[in-house]
Simulated scan of single mutants.
Amino acid sequence: MTLQRPKLSFWFDFGSTYSYLTAMRIETVARDRGLDLDWRPFLLGPIFNRQGWSTSPFNLYPAKGRYMWRDMERLCEEAGLPLVQPDPFPQNGLIAARIAHANRRAEWVGAFVRAVFMAEFGEGRDISDPALLAGLLLDLGADARACLAEADSIEVKIGLRAAVAEAETLGIFGAPSIVTEDGELYWGNDRLEDAVEWALRIVT
């Protein structure tokens, strides 16, 4: 009898600082603990808009924003990750999200997600630039031209919008969010280990 491998769904927004921290380690954590990983890029903007927010709450509430950037400095130093505050913040991650959504089953999707986050928060580069994304895809051996064309297709645009609607149905209100197969929701980089333990616990 083959035991079922538990699965985690990793919901992330490329503009999210704490998603950067989780994205850089979640694939390794999942592999080491014997879990399958479902990459779920989505957009926080529409969810924020429905709450009356026109931008990140870290911009709307300056004290919260100052704390977040200092917290990121501490956490990135601890993790050995570079940190550069991108300008503007948050970055426009729409094209990157479409690419990741369309290729979320590809073997290279994890490497692509990490490369985008590193370019953004590790180097302060503009991830809305198609040329930057094309270069990252080429570095991974992916067909950059085909990926960019697919990202502009109506099917992928509709698919990403549906992902946002699904996120809301799951109760997701921020990123990173990790959802186990029984629908348990964990929000934040610091909840990854808790999500892993729950996912392992529910497997029969």
Rank of each mutant, 00 (worst) to 15 (best):
L35Q: 01
L35C: 05
F42W: 15
W53N: 10
W39P: 01
Y61Q: 09
R31S: 10
Y20F: 10
F42R: 03
K64H: 06
A23T: 10
S19T: 14
W53T: 02
D36G: 15
Y61V: 15
T55N: 13
N49V: 04
L75A: 12
K64R: 14
S16K: 00
I47H: 05
M24R: 15
K64A: 06
E77Q: 11
S16C: 14
F14I: 04
G34C: 03
L37W: 05
P41L: 11
R70D: 10
N49T: 07
R50P: 00
P46K: 09
L37Q: 06
G34T: 05
F58D: 03
R66V: 08
W53F: 09
M24V: 02
S56H: 09
D13P: 02
L37G: 09
A23P: 07
F14W: 07
W53A: 11
G65P: 08
W39R: 04
I47T: 14
F12L: 13
C76T: 15
P46Q: 02
L60V: 12
P62L: 07
A63L: 13
A63P: 05
P57H: 03
F14E: 08
D32L: 14
T17W: 03
Y61N: 12
R40N: 05
T55M: 12
E73K: 11
E27G: 14
S54K: 13
L43K: 08
C76I: 07
Y20A: 14
F42E: 13
Q51Y: 01
M24S: 11
P62W: 01
W53M: 14
F48E: 02
S56C: 10
F42H: 04
R40E: 12
I26K: 07
F12K: 10
Y20S: 04
Q51C: 04
A30T: 05
C76G: 06
R31K: 14
L43N: 12
R40G: 09
R66I: 02
L60S: 11
L21M: 10
A63F: 00
Y67E: 10
L37T: 09
R74W: 07
Y18K: 08
I47W: 01
E78Q: 15
Y20G: 13
N59K: 14
R25D: 05
E78P: 01
F12G: 09
I26A: 00
Q51F: 06
R31A: 15
L43I: 00
R33A: 12
G65S: 03
V29C: 06
L37V: 08
A79T: 11
F48V: 04
T28Y: 00
G52N: 08
T22C: 10
E77A: 14
R40T: 04
I47Q: 11
L75N: 03
I47D: 02
P62S: 11
R31N: 13
E78Y: 05
T55V: 10
S54D: 12
D36I: 00
L37A: 06
W53L: 15
L44T: 01
E27A: 15
S19K: 00
L37K: 05
N59A: 06
M68G: 05
G65N: 05
P41Y: 00
D38Y: 04
R33D: 05
W53H: 09
A63V: 12
E78S: 13
E27D: 15
D71S: 07
G65H: 09
L35D: 05
S19C: 09
R31G: 03
R74D: 04
R50N: 12
E77M: 01
R70Q: 13
W69R: 07
W39A: 06
M72D: 08
W39N: 00
Y67G: 01
L44M: 13
G34N: 01
T28C: 00
P62E: 01
E27F: 04
